[in-house]
Measured scan of single mutants.
Amino acid sequence: MEVRTIKVFTTVDNINLHTQVVDMSMTYGQQFGPTYLDGADVTKIKPHNSHEGKTFYVLPNDDTLRVEAFEYYHTTDPSFLGRYMSALNHTKKWKYPQVNGLTSIKWADNNCYLATALLTLQQIELKFNPPALQDAYYRARAGEAANFCALILAYCNKTVGELGDVRETMSYLFQHANLDSCKRVLNVVCKTCGQQQTTLKGVEAVMYMGTLSYEQFKKGVQIPCTCGKQATKYLVQQESPFVMMSAPPAQYELKHGTFTCASEYTGNYQCGHYKHITSKETLYCIDGALLTKSSEYKGPITDVFYKENSYTTTIK
């Protein structure tokens, strides 16, 4: 009895394709271990004539594949690729409408935090270190965002349907971005203890939790000093293409032309909904596939993004 075979390709990165001759009487799992086709788990399936010449994702289970996976995804987590594939199996079914010149995501599976993050990423200057993220990001900007969303979920250790947080998501993504040249110098002034300067680099240099107003941050924000008295913390120097200011959701007025974009969060910790506000020729609110415009805006804002380049204080 002759062994019926077909020729397929296996890959971990969709760049390096490895030619395989597979036995049609055995499952993919018996031949390769966990195997995925377009995100779908085909591990328990036997090869079919229609699979001839198709590319299958496999887990990096030998040295060659491990090197290829690390170079593309910059992670050695053995569960990463499987999590990416199972997320992709959902995100490829989502709709990605162009809204006001940006790629958004039609609401499904509690994905409003991903839509808000995706919209924000198209408006701030950011370059990702893992080629996987950078490639998928370019495709997302062009309207094909399924891979990018699935990668975000995998890097953030999230599953489809789980509630997510924009600030946490951005923080994970910033860790995989090139923020080497970003720098922030802060000064804390206390009447009792004097003053202390701190220099922050990388992710810490672009994120701040405690106030939404970048102007206020430049002037000074009140913080408790270690001595128990009130101290003032203010920005001395900022070198970065953008800054992200966050605070627990509270009524906040966004003035046209003073910011790049913002995240609105309605609801409580267990259950809520994100919308995205962007400042173009007027203010726009993007909620999944829905767009509304207004000249002014007041609502429960939790993150505001500002364009920056270089700032030095005039406070002496």
Rank of each mutant, 00 (worst) to 15 (best):
P60V: 08
G29Y: 05
T258S: 07
Q270I: 08
M244G: 03
F174Q: 03
D303N: 12
Y274K: 00
T10Y: 10
Y252K: 04
Y96I: 08
W94R: 02
Y84H: 01
L235R: 02
M26V: 09
D38A: 11
Y36M: 06
N309S: 13
M85K: 02
C193W: 03
D38I: 08
N49K: 11
D165I: 00
A108M: 05
L179S: 06
A132M: 01
A69V: 06
Y36A: 06
D165Y: 09
H273Q: 07
L37N: 11
E308W: 01
Y306H: 00
R141W: 08
F80C: 00
E204S: 09
K280S: 12
Y28S: 09
M209K: 04
N309M: 08
T19D: 13
K229V: 07
F32I: 13
E68T: 06
V21E: 14
F259L: 01
A150K: 04
A140M: 12
S240M: 00
A145I: 00
V8R: 02
D23K: 13
Q270W: 09
Y155V: 04
T5E: 09
Q98H: 13
D180N: 15
P47L: 06
M170H: 01
L254A: 05
A205Y: 02
I45F: 14
E308S: 02
V166F: 15
Y73P: 07
Q20N: 12
H48P: 13
G39C: 14
T313N: 15
A145E: 03
P248Q: 11
A69L: 10
G228D: 03
A115H: 04
S86V: 12
Y72Q: 10
G161L: 03
K201C: 05
L81Q: 05
P224R: 14
D303T: 04
R184G: 09
T278G: 10
V67Q: 12
V22D: 04
Q98S: 08
E68H: 06
N16L: 08
S279Q: 08
T211D: 01
Q216F: 03
D77P: 07
C156T: 11
H48M: 14
L37S: 12
V166E: 03
E125Q: 13
D303V: 06
Y234D: 00
S263N: 15
R4V: 13
Y96C: 05
P131R: 07
V21K: 13
G82C: 14
A146R: 02
L291V: 15
A289F: 04
D109L: 03
Q270C: 14
C149V: 12
E168I: 08
E162N: 02
E52Q: 13
G288I: 04
D303E: 03
A142M: 13
T260S: 05
D41F: 07
Y214S: 01
A117Q: 00
N100A: 12
L290F: 12
M207H: 05
Y269N: 15
K307Y: 12
C271S: 08
V21T: 13
R141E: 05
T10L: 12
V206A: 01
C285F: 10
C225K: 03
G272C: 00
Y297R: 03
S213D: 12
E253G: 00
Y36F: 11
E168S: 14
C156A: 08
A140H: 08
Y138R: 14
E144C: 10
T313Y: 15
G164R: 00
G288M: 09
A145T: 03
T258Y: 09
T198A: 08
E125F: 07
T192S: 14
E125W: 01
L102K: 08
Y252I: 11
P249Y: 01
V188P: 00
D13M: 10
M85R: 06
A132R: 06
L254P: 05
E68M: 06
C190I: 03
Y297W: 07
L59F: 10
A262Q: 01
D180I: 07
L173K: 04
Q98I: 14
T169C: 12
T312Q: 14
Q123N: 07
P47T: 04
C227I: 02
V58R: 07
L81K: 06
L291E: 08
E52I: 12
P131T: 03
Q197E: 07
E204M: 08
Y72L: 08
P78A: 13
C156E: 01
I152C: 03
T169S: 03
Q98M: 11
G82H: 13
K191L: 11
V206W: 02
V243N: 02
E215W: 06
K275W: 08
L88E: 03
T199K: 10
G299L: 00
Q270V: 10
S171M: 14
Q134F: 06
M24P: 12
V21Q: 12
S240L: 01
T55P: 06
G164N: 09
Y269W: 12
T198M: 14
T43F: 09
M207N: 06
A87H: 04
T10M: 11
H90L: 12
G82P: 13
I45S: 13
S79M: 15
T232S: 05
W94G: 05
V160F: 03
G101C: 07
T258R: 08
V99Q: 00
D165H: 08
H74D: 01
E71K: 08
S86G: 09
Q196M: 13
F148W: 02
K7D: 14
T266W: 03
T5K: 12
S310W: 09
K44S: 13
N61F: 11
P300T: 15
D109I: 03
T266I: 11
Y269P: 15
P300G: 01
D41W: 02
G33R: 07
Q122H: 04
M209R: 11
T64V: 12
A262H: 05
T313A: 15
T226A: 14
Q251D: 13
Y252Q: 04
V189T: 13
V243H: 00
Q123V: 06
V304S: 04
V304M: 07
C156R: 00
A231W: 02
K46V: 13
L254Y: 09
L153S: 08
M170S: 01
V236S: 02
Y306I: 03
F217P: 01
T313H: 13
T35I: 15
R141T: 10
V99P: 00
Y113F: 10
R66S: 10
Q195G: 07
G161W: 07
E239M: 07
D180F: 08
H256E: 11
L17P: 00
Y208I: 00
K93G: 10
A247P: 04
G257R: 05
G164H: 04
N147M: 09
L119N: 02
N268M: 15
D62G: 10
Y311W: 09
A262W: 03
N14K: 08
L163C: 15
L186W: 08
T19I: 10
T312M: 15
I315G: 15
Y28C: 05
R139F: 09
F242N: 01
W94C: 03
F80M: 05
Q270E: 15
E204H: 09
F305I: 14
T211P: 03
A108G: 02
Q31Y: 14
Q216C: 07
L65A: 10
T169M: 10
K233N: 04
I124A: 01
A154W: 08
G228M: 06
Y269H: 15
D303I: 02
T10E: 01
F148S: 01
V22N: 03
K92I: 11
M26L: 14
S246Y: 05
P241Y: 01
V67M: 15
G267D: 15
L283Q: 00
H276V: 03
G267R: 15
P249W: 00
I45V: 13
I152V: 08
S50L: 14
T64D: 15
Q20F: 07
L126Q: 06
C112Y: 02
L88I: 06
T116H: 08
D38E: 13
G29T: 05
Y269K: 15
G288R: 02
Y57M: 11
G161N: 06
N16F: 08
A117T: 11
H18L: 02
N110H: 02
H18T: 12
R139G: 08
G33W: 02
Y234C: 02
E264R: 08
S294C: 14
K219V: 08
K7T: 13
